[in-house]
């Protein structure tokens, strides 16, 4: 694929977006009320992710018991059918997935008020049904939603987004094709602030461009936070209306 097609001179990307446009973002919470304490379903572009939060609950293993705070466990299951081409091997013990799990735990350890739930385990289970780029960011968004649904106390939203750098132009919310063709940055932003809880740069990126990449990234993450907040409030209003009617 030629670089020309990734970003046309008219300023259009492969899927017709402009540089600063998000993909379709749809989410719902409380989708698996029977199977979990908190759950979410997120579609960000063609990423489709189911997240289940179980807990805080009695730890299964003694090693998970911490007398001062809750233990946080995150498992990411990338299904074999999640990509266009079915993968032959399981992703379960892939280095990339293990790294992602560690990055996610680090991000949420600081944001969830784990000290309120000593001697318990919070278990987060994520199933990626379909992926199309920027997966780490989508995982963070889906975990934020499911945690809020579970009623577990946290300081603020964490919203995340991936940005690619095409020559000198940052491209917001990259898909797989863009992700494979250019350097990308994933960042997680706390609430409405400009504080980053996660920054992941996996390839080379010119330092002098980083600032503009971060600026559009933070703006994009804020928009994602807003979309999640809208959905949450809608859900909450629905629930409150339902319970006050009775």
């Amino acid at each position: 694929m030629s670089r020309f097609e990734l970003y046309s001179p008219e300023g259009l990307r492969l899927d017709g977006r402009r540089w600063n446009e998000l993909r379709r973002f749809e989410c719902s919470i409380n989708t698996h009320a029977h199977a979990s304490d908190g759950s979410s379903y997120l579609e960000q572009g063609n990423n489709k992710i189911v997240t289940l939060v179980k807990g805080p609950q009695e730890p299964i293993l003694r090693s998970q018991l911490d007398a001062t705070k809750a233990s946080l466990n995150i498992t990411v299951n990338i299904t074999k059918f999640s990509k266009m081409e079915r993968s032959k091997s399981s992703h379960k013990n892939e280095r990339r997935v293990l790294e992602m799990q560690t990055a996610l735990v680090r991000t949420f350890e600081k944001n969830v008020m784990l000290h309120l739930y000593p001697r318990t385990l919070i278990d987060i289970e994520i199933h990626v049904l379909q992926q199309d780029g920027g997966i780490l960011g989508s995982l963070i968004n889906s975990i934020t939603l499911a945690l809020i649904d579970s009623g577990i106390a946290m300081y603020d939203y964490v919203s995340a987004i991936s940005i690619g750098l095409y020559d000198t132009t940052p491209l917001l919310d990259v898909n797989t094709l863009e992700e494979n063709a250019m350097s990308t940055v994933t960042l997680g932003v706390i609430g409405k602030s400009e504080k980053l809880s996660l920054l992941s740069v996996e390839d080379k990126i010119p330092l002098d461009r980083l600032e503009s990449v971060l600026a559009i990234g933070i703006a994009g993450a804020h928009r994602v936070r807003e979309l999640m907040d809208n959905e949450l409030r809608k859900h909450a209003a629905h629930r409150v209306a339902k319970s006050s009617a009775k």
Partner: peptide, 9 residues
């Protein structure tokens, strides 16, 4: 045909 089954719960 590859039939993949994921049992969520």
């Amino acid at each position: 045909l590859y039939v993949d089954v994921l049992v969520l719960s």
